[in-house]
Design a protein around this nucleic acid. Structure first.
Lengths: 236, 236
DNA sequence: CTTAATAGCGTATCTCATACGCATCGATCG
DNA sequence: CGATCGATGCGTATGAGATACGCTATTAAG
């Protein structure tokens, strides 16, 4: 059960050395670092799922004692927030483009790619949390790209937001549906009682090729969103 | 840490009496029912957050022993799945309309309203899970409405999916941001070091009225999405 | 060399989910 | 009408997981 609270602002934006604490220079140097801890936690989540990220498991992997972790991270929930923000370290992978449409297309696909690579991050992203520095970096970069191709910053923000919202929502059916076909998804319609109960759904399902992968919707939807934005901009 | 597994198909779609089990008629009648349990759990989640839904707390509220719950629900994770699906019991609140655009507009707003009333449901929705009977009912109803105003079922599905994706993504910034202003959201830009680090973001933030509520984006984005769909349909 | 400031971490505690088994209750059957 | 079977209600025990506390080890500064 993951629920995040407030007060993560300091966690993400607090003043700290690359390691994690404001080290005046005294004392034992740290072998563990916040970065190593977060990176290992992400590795576990990617490979085994967020559920398997326990302080114990994590400490074992790092070859340290459980309580040592708490010197670098306030707690488990905060760790998850840091894990999420860490995903957006590194530069964003949006190709240079001449038109805002291509920039946003690339952005949408980047977001999609992120959640495909780290499916556990989607519920985290939809939980309550403040924007972290790495996430801010990503957004700043897209806005920069949009600015470069002539889209004013204010318009850029709503555009990015719109695309981002769509992308976030649209990855959901894709995740965990790896290899899932429409037939799997509509399995319940195999029961005749249910075809009567959901007549319209049944009609649609009948039209769909049973081995049609669910995943093709993303590109379609993204283009519709971009069309809508285009229309809006043209009217301005 | 909430993570759902597979195998929830039987849970949601298994053959059961209104109570929850296939009761041949023998044995002690049950005072507790799955419905009561799920409803109470939803009430707790609404009032205190999903985190506070523990089997103990729930049992106390219901005036029963903890282990009694397990007679009606396989486990905690499964309970959460049932809680989510139960939100979509009851008919969908989309007004009758003459044009598909209004139907989808209503649908988008319904989805938004759902997650506003039950913010805990968003991370659940974005987790891995099969479609439940109540959710299927909702979708079936919209498809029916769309069909009634002349939108063919196949087109209807992609349209619903697109709007749904957007709505799901777009509620996220709204939830928990109750009363949060743009100034709060961009709090980190108060630090001069950060305005240099995120120049484009800073520029946008400067343009926004500091007390502008974040929440106005939903309607804007939804209309863009609908515009995009309109364009697509016109081209058909 | 002393000392202050940290890092590492073992142990104890607390919260939770849940397996197991017994007691109880009622409808059905003899 | 009483025996019986099938289900429910639930106390207790177990085990996982997060984390508070406090001790020890380590190193730089003085």
């Amino acid at each position: 059960m993951l629920l995040l609270g407030q007060g993560d602002y300091e966690l993400l934006w607090g003043d700290r050395t690359p390691d994690g604490r404001p080290r005046p220079g005294r004392g034992r140097p740290s072998g563990l670092t916040r970065e190593r801890i977060v990176a290992e936690a992400v590795a576990i989540a990617d490979a085994e799922g967020l559920q398997k990220v326990s302080m114990k498991h994590l400490a074992d992997r790092l070859g340290s004692g459980v309580m040592s972790l708490y010197r670098h991270v306030p707690g488990k929930d905060e760790l998850v927030v840091l894990m999420y923000d860490s995903l957006m370290a590194g530069p964003i992978t949006v190709p240079e483009a001449d038109h805002w449409r291509d920039v946003l297309l690339g952005w949408g696909r980047s977001v999609r790619g992120l959640f495909h690579d780290h499916p556990w991050a989607l519920p985290v992203a939809t939980g309550e949390r403040p924007m972290g520095p790495h996430e801010a970096g990503w957004v700043d970069q897209v806005l920069g790209r949009l600015d470069a191709v002539g889209m004013p910053p204010a318009t850029g923000l709503v555009a990015v937001l719109t695309v981002d919202c769509f992308a976030l929502g649209a990855v959901r059916p894709e995740i965990g549906a790896t290899g899932e076909t429409a037939a799997d998804f509509f399995r319940f319609l195999a029961d005749p009682a249910n075809t009567g109960r959901f007549p319209h759904l049944a009609r649609v399902a009948a039209d769909i090729a049973p081995d049609d992968p669910v995943e093709d919707h993303f590109e379609f939807g993204l283009h519709r969103v971009l069309d809508g934005l285009q229309l809006y901009l043209d009217r301005q």
